[in-house]
């Protein structure tokens, strides 16, 4: 068994009922598990929600996370989709200060990343970018020198490929 800290993406299908998110959040705090990000939304079946949780810890902690999540009465399925071939995506809105006369540089960078200009004002632009971890990280590195004034990320979502 390895004890190195790993990030895992756990996909949890739960009953779409009030209080389920609170149960999961309190489970993580009560057991001392670290959530890096958590995303919740309805699935193709409106009675079910899918949570995508990015959590870090060693193998023993990850095993407990999976089991404890499964133990909740409202949990239908827990899948660790880190190692499997899955499609992952994150969404970020980034507000960037535009140095005078350099807006077009930002537009170029956005285009390179297939990101979208969500808002343009005199001194700022908001860029909407989605994609995998690496893509978002390199985008953020490139625009960092311009000065990020605000940012929000939706948290990772992921689905297993194929059947």
């Amino acid at each position: 068994m390895t004890h190195k800290n790993n990030r895992h993406i756990i996909s949890v299908v739960v009953e779409n009922k009030p209080g389920v998110l609170a149960r999961i959040a309190s489970l993580f705090s009560a057991r001392g598990f670290n959530i890096e990000s958590l995303n919740v939304g309805e699935t193709e079946n409106s009675e079910l929600s899918r949570m995508t949780i990015v959590v870090s810890g060693d193998d023993r902690i990850l095993e407990q996370v999976r089991k404890q999540l499964s133990k909740l009465i409202d949990t239908i399925k827990v899948t660790d989709i880190t190692d499997s071939t899955s499609v992952e995506s994150d969404l970020a809105l980034v507000k960037i200060k535009v140095p005078s006369g350099r807006r077009s540089e930002l537009v170029d960078i956005a285009n390179l990343f297939q990101a979208r200009l969500a808002d343009v004002s005199e001194k700022h632009v908001i860029i909407e970018i989605s994609g995998g971890e690496d893509k978002l990280e390199s985008f953020l590195r490139l625009i960092a020198p311009y000065g990020i004034s605000e940012m929000v990320r939706a948290g990772r979502i992921a689905l297993r490929r194929g059947d």
Partner: peptide, 16 residues
């Protein structure tokens, strides 16, 4: 009650 007993009960319900 749901919030208070969540971490000490196997499960709990609020009948709404």
């Amino acid at each position: 009650v749901l919030g208070v007993t969540r971490s000490v009960a196997k499960h709990n319900y609020l009948v709404s």
